[in-house]
Amino acid sequence: MNVATLREGISYQGGLLALFSTVTAAALVIAAVYTSPAIHVAEQHDLETSLAQVLPQGYNDNNLLQDVVHVKDADGVDVEVHRASKAGALKAAVFTTSSSGYAGPIVILVGISRDGVVQGVRVLRHNETPGLGDKIDEAKTNWIHAFEGKALATAKWLVKKDGGDFDQFAGATITPRAVVKAVKEALEFHQAHLDAIYASK
């Protein structure tokens, strides 16, 4: 049997597909084995730096990724709280929360000290309109820093248009309103679960 007729046969075609599937799958497996440790390290590093940015520099001396407690909020949803401590004393909690903005959910990360003062807020994910609502992003404006040092009792947690303390943007009120609401709810959650968050393990 010559090669030309062999090539037309179903077994050649099937074998060819099998061969290529095997080779490509093997290549992927090998690559995955070699890259996954490096990817893991890089992702942990990303997470740590993003968690650390809502706390002032030198605020804690522990690894935020290591000290995690799970607390259920009022709706029974599990919240992962990272705890910051210095010299063994628990000082602050860092966790994510979200609220719905103009276009989908806005996910924010908040750092709150044990006495209920906001240390820092960052927007992790949002779909707000570029040029309008995206001013909540720290890369665009420093609006998000307005929360620092504020506590539930020391600020009116509304945008100025609604009689509160926080600026809205020209042409976009819904977005900042959603962020203010999310931070306020984070503070309320923190206050309501102080014992659970700072319980010694």
Binding site: Q13, L16, A27, L28, A31, T35, S36, A38
Partner: peptide, 28 residues
């Protein structure tokens, strides 16, 4: 590669290359 199975083979090659690029960029 024969004409009959070329499309799946090409797709497998392309998808693999893209995934390899994706993983190595992510790692290094």
């Amino acid at each position: 590669v024969t004409e009959q199975v070329r499309i799946p083979v090409f797709i497998a090659i392309i998808a693999t290359i893209v995934t390899l690029v994706d993983m190595s960029l992510n790692a290094w």
